[in-house]
Design a protein around this nucleic acid. Sequence first.
DNA 1: TAACTTTTTCGTACGACGTACGGAATAGAT
DNA 2: ATCTATTCCGTACGTCGTACGAAAAAGTTA
Lengths: 254, 254
Amino acid sequence: MSDHPDPVLRLLWRYDDGAAPSTRRGRKQRLTVDDVVDAAVRIADRDGLPGLTMRLLATDLGLGAMSLYTYVPGRDELVVLMVDRVLGRRELPAMPDDLPGRMALIARVQYEICQEHPWLLEISGLRAWVGPGASDLYEWQLSGIEGVGLDDIEMDQTVALLAGFAGSVVRAQQRMRQDERTSGLTQAEWWAANADELGVVMAGREYPLAGRVGATTGEAYQAATDPAREMEFGLARIIDGLVAYIEGKRSATS
Amino acid sequence: MSDHPDPVLRLLWRYDDGAAPSTRRGRKQRLTVDDVVDAAVRIADRDGLPGLTMRLLATDLGLGAMSLYTYVPGRDELVVLMVDRVLGRRELPAMPDDLPGRMALIARVQYEICQEHPWLLEISGLRAWVGPGASDLYEWQLSGIEGVGLDDIEMDQTVALLAGFAGSVVRAQQRMRQDERTSGLTQAEWWAANADELGVVMAGREYPLAGRVGATTGEAYQAATDPAREMEFGLARIIDGLVAYIEGKRSATS
DNA sequence: TAACTTTTTCGTACGACGTACGGAATAGAT
DNA sequence: ATCTATTCCGTACGTCGTACGAAAAAGTTA
């Protein structure tokens, strides 16, 4: 039974059952699973997850649509493979010496991965399979906060906090980009163009704080060309809080 | 032109153009837009966003499928209305006196909204329209951190940080629930049942940290029946970091 | 009351999607 | 040369959002 693992697990780990490739009968596959997954990633990077259709992927690979199903059981499983692939493909930089720097790096790598593959944030309703890519990344993330005084559960929560925050930032940016794409206007331009319409439609409702803050951020984001800087405020606060917690724990036990 | 606002804006704010209802000719609508949106929310709460189909919603309302399009331009716009509806439907509690408590409350309300309407986290690729529900919520969130020494941009980022974190936590929980639903096993049960298969398939790869931390958290999450407690660690760190920043700013200017 | 106008209702249909099915093609084993 | 295992892929089914146009209903006007 351990010779017949879950087909998704087998695919994720590219486990080929130990069968000697010389004894494999029948027609040969023209491509590899990696070819299929890589092509799928390219399409999703360009067109988003809904733009990744089995037919498009197949023709992109020079195959008939149904031939894909000899490589992959279905679309959902393909997405699982894509996720693990992009998590594992990035080479993981060496951890710096200072703890805050290591925490920032964990967040920044997650940020860049999500940035390069925005469809990662569109996924939902899928199981969280454990593959080599996710495992390598998780191991690397943990190595950045190992031995600083956190217990295992706190380590897991810390990684989740840093990575989750990075995802949130990218999500916010994507929403902004989406707005600009569909409206053809920047954030500030849209508000300027629709200010009177909004006034009519809101019909007397007052939002003193939201109005003031919205106006200020609207102006600021118009000029902010470096999207990476949007992460700095939150990340700095999170790292401060984490470091303070760790130092508090240390001084309590010493 | 300000009499003909964007149809989505008009719907969001239920702006009926000031036309006297007595002069409206033609067959009468059997339902209201709110009826449609509420029914859609009920379905999405139960079946998720992919389970919300126009045909199902229509029969649920006793309408033909195409009759929905007299209430709403299309499915995407319906989802926009649903979002604003559930953001605005929650009554917003009074803010406590202490700043950390107000920050925690902002996160907790966001957490509960996401928890009650998990489909909120499945949405992507849609514009972020500004409606009364979102505006009310944003105004309330800002009121919790107004006058503490943050500038407008920092206030926006603080709210985003707290709300984004809450969303991340719910997302993680949903993924866990999804795993349990599709596998029929709890986290710990799955790892116990698949440990040997994983060993075979991983074929010599070593994950010392991930293995140790994964085992510990797996055990812990098996027993943790109160999902709300998963938020405490991260939220406490974030609030610590925010409060420290604000105090630092205060002492610098005084 | 009858004719007209406006709006809602909804049956039908189209194109796109994931993919089940079964036959044709191809390779190694016998 | 035959058998068997495997890949390839054309066809087709059910589901989705929704375009289109006819039928039904309600107010306005003659």
